[in-house]
Design a protein around this nucleic acid. Sequence first.
RNA 1: CGGGGCGUAGCGCAGCUUGGUUAGCGCGCCUGCUUUGGGAGCAGGAGGCCGGCGGUUCGAAUCCGCCCGCCCCGACCA
Length: 478
Amino acid sequence: MAKNRLPKQSEDFPAWYVEVVKQAGMAEHGLVKGMQIIKPHGYAIWEGMQRALDERFKATGHENLYFPLLFPESLFAAEKDHVEGFAPEVAVVTHGGGEKLEEPLVIRPTSEAVIWSTYATWIQSYRDLPLLYNQWCNVLRWEKRTRLFLRTSEFLWQEGHTAHATSEEAMEEALRMLEVYREVAEDVLAIPVLPGRKSPSERFPGAEETFTIEGLMRDNKALQCGTSHFLGQNFAKAYDVQFLNQQGALEYAWATSWGFSTRMIGALIMTHGDDQGLRLPPALAPVQVAIVPIYRSEEEHALVIEMSSKIRDALAGNGIKVRLDDRDQHRPGFKFGEWELKGVPVRMEIGPRDVEADQVVVARRTGGDKESLPVAGAIAGMAAMLDGIQSDLYDEATALRNANTHEVTDYASFVEGIASESGYWAGAWCGRVECEQKAATDTKATIRVLPVEREDPGAACLVCGRPGVERATWARAY
RNA sequence: CGGGGCGUAGCGCAGCUUGGUUAGCGCGCCUGCUUUGGGAGCAGGAGGCCGGCGGUUCGAAUCCGCCCGCCCCGACCA
C-alpha cells in the first residue's frame, strides 16, 4: 500500500485540500496575502480549460480581444448597483511615476465599466450589433478571506461581454453561454452541475438576471462554477450606448456578460480527489499516461527503456499525452505514489518480466486491480480506457451528488436535516427575501439555484407556509 | 473588522516555563557505494540575521514593549 502523506478527506477536508494543492504542485501562496503562484501542473490544467472554452466560444461566433487593466475611478461609478456591489473589493492605484495621480485608477475587478464605456463609441446602428466579444485576463478583488484557487484576490478568468439589439436576443445569449459552461463542466471536467437561475439577492451587481452552474463538492458543500448574466439595458444606460434601429429610433443596447475562472481548478480537485491525491479527468490531464520503468542492472535498464520508448512513441502517435518517467533518482514505488498524487489517469509499469512476455502492467487511477496487457492491445485500447476513466469520474461524482440531494416539504426537517447532513436540499419557496434570509440564518445554507424556467413547486413555502412560487435548491456553499 | 494561534535551515518541528559554551531533530538537498515490481539503506557533507525594532541584563531564540506578516474561526463576499 502507498504511504499516505495527505490528511484524510473524511477527517479534515480543508487540510486535505490545502495539502493536495501544494504537494501535487498545483499552486502556492504568493508574497502578498490572497495572491497565489500557479505552478506548472495547475497552469497546464487551466490551459486545458481555456482550450475547451475558447473553441466553444469561437464556435458560437465570439471573438477575443483585450481591454486595459486600469480605468478611471469616475468611470466605475456610473452604474449604481455595480459600484455598490464591488466597492468593498476594489483596489485603487493612487500613485504613478512617483507622483500622486490627478484621478485614482481602478484595477479591474471585472470589466463591464471599461468595456461598455468603449462600446458607446463602437455602436451607432443596429447593423453594428450584435457584438460578441470575450477576453482572457486577470482581475483583482480585495478578499477578506482567501483560499488557493477557490477565492484569491487575483485570479485568471475569461469574461464575455456581448451587446444586442433586443432583449430576447440578449437573453438567448446568456442562456447559450450557460449551456456552454454546463457542457464544459460535465463533458470536459467531468463535474455534474445544476444549471439554473440565482435568487435576486445573489445576483451579480448590475444584472437583471444571473444564471449559474452549481457543483456539489465531496464535502457536500456547493460551489458556484461559472455565471452568465443578462444585464438588460443597465450598462447601456449608465454608459450611454444607444443605436438607431431599423425604424430610425434610438434604443439602448441589451447586454450580457459571462465568466469562468481558475476557481474551477479548485472545483476539479474537490469533486474528484481522493485520499491518495488528485484524480484528473483524461480530457484535461496534462499527462494521461505515465510510464514507470523498472530495472536492476544496466542491461535490464537498456531493454526496459527501449521498449518503454517505443510504447511512448506509439501512444503519442495516437494523440495520447504520455510521459516516460526515466528519472533515476527515484525508485518505482516513489513514482507510483507521485503520479497518483498528481492525478494521472493511467500508469504503465514496464519491467524485465514485461519485456520478456511482450506485455505491460496497467493501473487505472479510478481504481480496480492492476492488469497485465499485451503491448499491442494496451496501445490500441488506451484511448478507450481513457474514455472509460472520464465517464467513471463523471458517474461517480453524479452518484455522490444524487445520494446527497434531498427533497423536503416542511421547515423542521429541512433545518434538522441540513444540520446533520449537508448537501442539496430542495423545496418550495414563496420568493420573498425574508424567507430566504430566515432560512439562511437558521441553516447557514443559501439558495444555490432556481430552475431556469420558473416551476410551480405545487407546495407551500418551506419557511412561511405561503403558496410556493419557486422550487429552490439550498446548500451550504463555499 | 472581532476572537484564537503561529513566526527558529527549502519544508515540518523541538528548545523558551527556570537567560549562560559551538541552537538541535525529521524530511528534503549534495557526494560515494549498495539498491530499484508500492514512497530504499549505509557513510560522509552543505545549509541559520532564531520575523523586525527597541528595552532589561555581564550575557537574550529564551524576559518585557511596540511593530510586521501569515494561518484558523466568525462577520463580509461576482
